[in-house]
Design a protein around this nucleic acid. Structure first.
Lengths: 207, 207
DNA sequence: CTTGACAGCTAATCACAATTAGCTTATAAT
DNA sequence: ATTATAAGCTAATTGTGATTAGCTGTCAAG
């Protein structure tokens, strides 16, 4: 891995733990294994490092979606897969989603960093909302619209179904970001959540 | 209002916008209308100001719960009120809850501050989880257990019902913290969310 | 009246963090 | 072989931020 890349990684790790302004360039350098002034051979300022992290993540965004076996924004392609909502396919899906976002090193660090910096300016606010609220809701909504249309679920607004499905997962995710020791508990809750979600929304009623 | 109190207020405002380490004591002083060194007549360090904010909020915690017409941790007392889940009492409840937490100046600033600082140490992590995840869930759960028992709702795990009810509200709340301009949209979603929540969980079925 | 505590101020101090200057070495292309 | 470039280093520089020293005015208690 190139030094430049190493700098981005270590910087993100530190920013994710303590936030941009609490981290000093010396620490980033030390983590990389060089001295502070050498950072300036690769980036013109501390702010520039931060910006580069954002740029990198913007270009990684689609790759990330691909890393799950989902199509990111374009959920139409995935919907048929979910249509086979037999038994706990839905449960598995939700849990995979949760596990991936929680454990993927890059995704997880980036999310924590954005959590800390989200109020800093409106670009970051919008980015956070897009990544962790809007896009997932649009995606899930598409899926549920499809399932509803094919008769698997009762007739209900797919946007609200998406909210019902995703919000608890989101809440557990942010909880595990700050308290990783509660992952087990979170998984348990998510599993029950999805089972009950399926129960109340599926046409036949209970499992 | 005493200067000491003003310092705490202004400091919290700034910490909520930009986080502890990005704010310098001079700014706090300026917001209060004094010079930086004068702060030290009231607090022995910048960190001490932060700690005092936490202390203050700990002692305000119960008052806050009282400000809503709820009993904080002890939901047993409130449950009967909710038992009359006729029509949109539930909707009103949820929306009031949302509005209060979003607009109350103190509650809102404190939440943002804690959002930024939550990863700083485990005490803050626990505090965040308690305030915005665990306590609300316990509270809601108690309510739903009661409603279920009195036959208003289908038989389902009240913990999961609480999660279903609260998580979307929580997600919209944190969204509005970073994008206040989306409040209308959030309220709309919450209203539909609760209506649908009631529809799927109430014994009779639809509205 | 006067005195002491309080709360403010200006002018240091002290540390440290970001960045720049300028030197060195390795390496890869000419 | 030579040389230009990249990437590292040490030693400034510069700015800023937290905190301390020490002075001053106010005001309530004696």
């Amino acid at each position: 891995m190139t030094t430049k890349q190493k700098i981005l990684n270590e910087a993100m790790t530190l920013f994710a733990e303590r936030g941009y302004s609490a981290v000093c360039v010396g620490e980033i350098a030390e983590a990389v294994g060089i001295k502070a002034p050498s950072l300036y051979k690769h980036f013109k300022s501390k702010q520039d490092i931060f910006n580069a992290i954002l740029d990198e993540m913007r270009s990684n965004y689609d790759k990330q979606a691909a890393a799950l076996n989902i199509n990111g924004n374009k959920a139409e392609g995935d919907a048929p897969v979910f249509a086979l909502v037999s038994e706990d396919v839905l449960v598995q899906m939700g849990i995979e989603l949760f596990r991936f976002f929680l454990h993927d090193d890059y995704a997880s660090k980036f999310r924590k960093m954005l959590t800390i910096e989200q109020f800093h300016n409106s670009e970051l606010s919008m980015l956070y909302s897009k990544q962790y609220v809007d896009d997932p809701l649009v995606y899930q909504s598409t899926i549920f619209a499809y399932i509803s249309a094919s008769g698997g679920f009762i007739n209900a607004d797919p946007n609200i179904m998406a909210l019902h499905f995703y919000a608890p997962i989101y809440m557990m995710l942010t909880m595990c970001d700050r308290q990783p020791e509660r992952e087990k508990e979170a998984l348990q809750l998510i599993e029950e959540h999805i089972k009950q979600f399926r129960a109340v929304y599926s046409k036949d009623g209970q499992t």
